[in-house]
Design a protein around this nucleic acid. Structure first.
Lengths: 227, 227
DNA sequence: TGTACATCAGTGAACGCGCGTTCACTGATGTAC
DNA sequence: TGTACATCAGTGAACGCGCGTTCACTGATGTAC
């Protein structure tokens, strides 16, 4: 996502009487692309992907509706950028869990802890940031084969890559037979993805965070045992 | 879903020259509610819940847009009826699997087979009837506490009740410790729900049915082992 | 058996809504000379 | 250092779209007498 930051000086006072009704002091916006993207992310946070509406984003940026077309080809293009940001946020949530992992224990314990951290990061994010999660993974989405850096967290890995790495560790530690490794991502992901969605849209909606926490623990126990 | 079937005779020819442009021969429709519901189900089948559009349903029924308001309070009301039908269809898919279960084996084997049949019915339906599945379980949905008969299959049980019954059998057969029974629905459901959605919306989209079949088997193995 | 009448299912026209998108434009900015 | 100019980010107005929904209506149907 190469954004050309312009950083126009906001100090320059307009030479003539201000006739525009916007709060902006400069004619140019400065970084409208960023502003539209931020507005889009906020809309997604509150209402999911369908709430990412071009006109509303421009309204929030204090700009005419068609100004968006200088920075995004169309609504889909804006939504794609918002989605990339949401996926990156999921990756960051995983990384936050990984950072709190105890550094002690056998390699097997470490590997299991890593898988659990990845799963917990996924589910916690879904429960805490419903709208963004639905934007990232609630509708049609794929897995970037050529990893899109925009979807990575601070480590540059996207959520799928974090999961893959954790499962690889499980094999290395001898806790998962290599012949069962292929496709294991989809088994683990299914499990955690299902609970995430059930806690958003389904019968688990409105379940308090601590109850979800315990249920998530049990789910991850089940995966560890069953893989 | 108490529908008053009217079954108006279609034979009666109009006494005066036909002035209406519709293909209908009678002024009254006969069973417009059913026709709108069927149209809604077809729309859902093809495009999911968002495709259930009042005006389109009336168009397909050959009727003025506002005629729908004689039978449904509003769009939401129609959608709710379509959703109930979709949930019932999921239940029927489970029942089809249950019907093909081998009747041999120990009680434990039987109980495991039952859980697997329920899960397989869920996932097969999701893969085969994407639009209907998304209508039933792809958006906000709850579990009817007072079971809504409209959501049941031929046995009257809804999908959740089928799952619960299967897990109860597991306990009875001694294959699941009673203390782990509470909440087990949500663990099992999450797993299967996640794979269903991944195969519709996610990275598993477009995966051929037989590959999904094998992946589903592995998933159900994992659940059986992990529960 | 025939007739008057109440019911109410469907009609026809219209509404306001907010959306995405296109058009021709304007005027601030940075650059070449 | 000053000036002319090309660039292109944002403006203002407008479009067509299809939607859900409301209004006053009409006329086929079944029923009471």
């Amino acid at each position: 996502m190469p954004v050309t930051h312009r950083n126009a000086p906001a100090a320059s006072a307009p030479p003539v009487a201000v006739s525009t009704p916007t709060a902006r002091s400069t004619y140019r916006h400065g970084d409208l692309r960023r502003a539209l993207l931020d507005a889009g992310i906020e809309l997604a946070r509150q209402g999911g992907p369908d709430a990412v509406v071009l006109r509303e984003a421009t309204r929030r940026a204090g700009v005419a509706p068609n100004a968006a077309y200088r920075h995004f080809a169309n609504r889909q293009d804006l939504l794609a950028a918002v989605r990339a940001a949401a996926v990156a946020a999921v990756a960051q949530s995983m990384e936050a869990e990984l950072a709190h992992m105890p550094a002690t224990g056998t390699p097997t314990e470490q590997a299991h802890a890593k898988v659990r951290a990845v799963g917990a990061g996924y589910m916690r994010f879904a429960h805490a940031e419903t709208g963004l999660f639905r934007t990232a993974f609630g509708g049609p989405f794929g897995v970037a084969q050529n990893p899109d850096p925009a979807m990575g967290g601070d480590t540059g890995l996207n959520p799928f890559q974090h999961l893959s790495a954790a499962l690889d560790d499980l094999v290395t530690a001898g806790a998962l037979p290599p012949e069962r490794r292929p496709g294991a991502e989809y088994l683990a992901w299914s499990t955690v993805h299902g609970m995430a969605l059930l806690s958003i849209d389904g019968p688990l909606r409105g379940t308090p965070a601590e109850t979800m926490e315990r249920l998530g623990e049990r789910l991850l126990d089940m995966v560890a045992r069953g893989l």
